[in-house]
Design a protein around this nucleic acid. Sequence first.
RNA 1: GGUCCUGUAGUUCAAUGGAUAGAAUACGAGUUUCCUAAACUUUAGAUCCGGGUUCGAUUCCCGGCGGGACUACCA
Length: 591
Amino acid sequence: MENQLKNAVVAAVEQLYGSAPDQSQITLQKTKKEFVGDWTLVTFPLLKLSRKNPAQTAQEIGDYLKENVSIVADINVINGFLNIVLKQGSWLDTLGKMDADANYGLVPVTENSPLVMIEYSSPNTNKPLHLGHIRNNLLGYSLAEIMKANGYKVIKTNIVNDRGIHICKSMLAWQKFGAGATPESVGKKGDHLVGDYYVAFDKAYKEEIKALMADGMSEDDAKKNAPLMLEAQEMLRKWEAGDAEVRALWQTMNQWVYDGFDETYKRMGVDFDKIYYESDTYLVGKEKVNEGLAKGLFFTKEDGSVWADMTDQGLDQKLLLRADGTSVYMTQDIGTASLRFQDYPINKMIYVVGNEQNYHFQVLSILLDRLGFEWGKDLVHFSYGMVELPEGKMKSREGTVVDADDLMDEMIGTATEISKELGKLDGMSQEEINAICTTIGLGSLKYFILKVDPRKNMTFNPKESIDFNGNTGSFIQYTYARIQSVLRKAAELGEVALGDVSLNEKEVALISTLASFPEVVKQAGKEYSPSLIANYTYDLVKEYNQFYHDYSILKEENEAVRAMRIVLSRNVAKVIKQAMALLGIGVPDKM
RNA sequence: GGUCCUGUAGUUCAAUGGAUAGAAUACGAGUUUCCUAAACUUUAGAUCCGGGUUCGAUUCCCGGCGGGACUACCA
């Protein structure tokens, strides 16, 4: 509809003023509520072509449209804004078409669709997931769904940082203080158990530092020479050397963590098509760097360390291999990229990683490009801001981290309480109650996080953010459930078909909002922005609730109008469900 | 110091360079014999400061001021 109008305006301008306008000169937007009309053309950019004042230009173009375009019913001009009223029939057509399309708003994926790989989550294996990971996971999953909806093949991937000094710390602490504890023996999720020992290490380590400093050692020296740290480093060396005992423990404890993560992922509703482990990729990275070195892309310093010179790009020199030949973060990412490239014909790579790593990805992009990866140059770092608490940043050492599992428990718990208070759960089985309250609790959490522009830092107030009224996930879910209830009753009346009826203002507004869904999906894909989908859905739902409040659906006496309202309602529900699916949020049939 | 991100009602968030800057919350005032009141209606409240470009700037550019991140042989 929008395109049809756009083309008509181009034709009008060409007819009237002799030359065709540029696409960028045509500003067509939805008419604001205060004015009469459906679409508004801003005429200012066209004045150069018309050589007339705004009002005149608008009037002339408007007259032409009214005369020559079948879907235009009427026009009015205010201050150089040309408001266009569309014919009722065209709205009914639009509604009919979307009603017939089960995949409304989605671009089908074909064999020739480009392949985009999305990396997200990427946890360390020494502690459980927290609120920051939740934002990452939700964004990554949603982005994948949005890209699919835009006709891309999508591979979701995860790089697990399973090796290094951090996991050795947990292992060491477990050996020393664990007394053989396992997730089963203490009845705790594996990731939490391993995280406990990471904390235990840190605590004991700090005490050692304090003691050494009391004996007169400087802080830096104390940190380096604390026995626990030396032991952890020794353990890492043994790991690198393939020491059987260390490797066995490493495998056991990592497996505990994976089992714990799996549970959390599953509950959160996110998944991966392919998981990479740093322990498998860091050696490939070393190889790649050495190849690059042989090709003269990198250089060696006197101590034997390998560097990339990025000064021609306005960046610094970047270390790729330490003097002892061991790898760093960048080396690993090069290796992972290399493996991925071998495994899949990647056209586009998106990394969902926090904005504190902007520099890293700037460098990685240049390095991959130099090493000959086709997608290296325009890899996308989907960079998102941090989640802060009202009192500031989360700090694991200070115990202010909001744990992912706890938070989900809390959300579901609150949803259950509120549902009970409202008497919504009467007569339901326990199973049904659990399913519904989980959907609601998680839906609110997800929506809360995804509705915010990803680039921005956001504040999460555990007390206040758990809200189920207003611009929230449950508001949207509630509306969906309400429509389902209407549709269930409508089904008893039999099949409905769209006839020729006249539409009221709210109905037109609703169809108009529904009609823009495909455009919103496209936009969200172009800008990598789940928040666009979230905010669109909220607008749609708010509009529907007003309509629902003002007009009856099933009790409407005019049969044709009733049928139209039922069709309208089921399409609102369809779009809500689809849009929420793009965010990874489920919708209940009742609540 | 340098690079990047960011600054909108008390608070949490919106606004392809377009009309009187939208919502939600919290605060006032209302709506249930009627399809689910987790809803709806309504009062009040905001673009950090100074320049520039433009018919028009919350948006783009420059300069301040405030917040954050990065600038590790940690990942």
